[in-house]
């Protein structure tokens, strides 16, 4: 049901055109943060307003939309954003990565490789990779325009000097097409390799900070490192306890208060697809549907008040 009191996908056409212009500019200069006149959205800043505006500007009535948060289709904020577009745009939605034409995501890249024609829209809290080294916008913009990225490496140097390895686990900085250093949004560094040479278009929207940036298809994205301390996209040394996957990013779930825990795919669609195809992990049974599996853990780890 489309809510008739608002324009298709909520934003008025003029605003969408303004955002599309910013997106085109972002695609033309990969990794460069394009300022745009972010609008107040009917959801709070910091909750995906940048991603929502980019999605709204890209959506066509024939699109199929998937929304994930932390890899899952059913987290509260993903549900809320999906509902928003169902209500204001009436587009078809899906949980299957392969069926979606636009995927809005917070903090993950789907496990299943994306294909040409798909658009991945990231929600970005702080678009500036240099922000915590230099708080001033006027200064960081200069640093980008002059490619003054020495400070970024000082941070990595300090990590190695102190910890023996680079101590950045998510929002790991990357260099796009040999020019701009970019924040890939708070995805785990495990996802970084998927940024590079993807056939899909990757768009990044930061609403509160009024920035849009992009990684066009087949763009080289390199995670910053040292020659003798190369980037390491490692993850927890476990298999998924439900589907047995060894190559997917895992969430750790505490199952009791005596240290019991299980590891499950953070990408719920990936996990479900594998189980439906007959794969099973340490605790999973292949024939279960995701809903039954999920419900079966309600007893172990009951819903908390967080859900509201």
């Amino acid at each position: 049901m489309t809510d008739q009191s608002y324009n298709f996908a909520y934003l008025d056409e003029q605003t969408k055109r303004m955002i599309r212009r910013a997106i085109l500019k972002a695609v033309a200069v990969p990794g460069y943060q394009v300022p745009f006149a972010s609008r107040e959205m009917p959801m709070p800043y910091g909750w995906g307003t940048g991603g929502v505006q980019v999605t709204a500007a890209c959506l066509m009535p024939e699109d199929v939309l998937k929304v994930i948060d932390q890899g899952a289709d059913d987290t509260t904020n993903a549900v809320s954003i999906r509902k928003f577009f169902q209500r204001t745009a009436g587009v078809a939605t899906t949980e299957a990565t392969s069926e979606a034409t636009i995927i809005q995501t917070r903090h993950r890249i789907p496990e299943q490789a994306l294909t040409a024609g798909q658009i991945l829209v990231y929600q970005v809290p702080i678009p500036e990779p240099l922000r915590f080294l230099e708080p001033r916008e006027t200064e960081t913009r200069k640093m980008h325009s002059l490619e003054e990225y020495g400070l970024m490496h000082v941070k990595l140097y300090e990590d190695i000097a102190r910890h023996g390895s680079i101590a950045t686990a998510y929002a790991y900085p990357v260099k796009v097409e040999g020019r701009y250093v970019m924040d890939p949004s708070p995805i785990p560094k495990f996802d970084n390799p998927k940024l590079s040479d993807s056939p899909a278009l990757q768009l990044f929207g930061a609403g509160r900070e009024q920035r849009i940036y992009a990684v066009p298809p087949f763009t080289r994205v390199v995670s910053l490192d040292f020659d003798d301390h190369p980037f390491d996209p490692s993850k927890a040394p476990h298999d998924c306890d439900l589907c047995g996957a060894s190559e997917s990013y895992l969430d750790e779930v505490i199952t009791d208060d005596s240290g019991g825990r299980m590891f499950v795919c953070s990408d719920t669609d990936f996990c479900r697809t594998r189980r439906e195809a007959g794969h099973a992990g340490r605790l999973g049974e292949a024939q279960f549907s995701s809903k039954k599996i999920a419900n079966s853990f309600e007893g172990i780890c009951p819903p908390t008040g967080d859900e509201a």
């Binding site: 003054e148 990225y149 020495g150 400070l151 000082v154 140097y157 020659d227 301390h229």
Partner: peptide
Amino acid sequence: RMGVTAGGNVGERLMAVGTRNYGSIR
């Protein structure tokens, strides 16, 4: 940079001009 180690302080200009080998910076 008072919050950065002595090594990082000396290494910053090297990294600014493109040195990307931790061992040689060190």
